[in-house]
């Protein structure tokens, strides 16, 4: 199985979890964007934050 096939397979697994069908014509584009986002996810997940730093769901100056 090629790398592209692996990525496409991963996408379909993720998509099934939210009941989304990725049309065949969209797989390449979604894969490219997923790769881009993975880079950003790795960047933020590489940051160690204190347990006392909660998520910021709204802005309270």
């Amino acid at each position: 199985m090629s790398e592209q096939d692996h990525i496409a397979n991963d996408l379909q697994v993720l998509a099934r979890q939210i009941d989304l069908t990725i049309p065949a014509d969209c797989v390449a584009g979604v894969a490219a964007n997923t790769q881009l986002l993975r880079g950003y996810v790795n960047l933020i997940c590489g940051m160690t934050l204190p347990d006392t730093c909660p998520p910021a769901y709204e802005y309270r100056p």
Partner: peptide, 10 residues
């Protein structure tokens, strides 16, 4: 569409 789909899968 492709950007939104990738976002939905995060």
């Amino acid at each position: 569409r492709d950007r939104l789909m990738a976002g939905a899968l995060l």
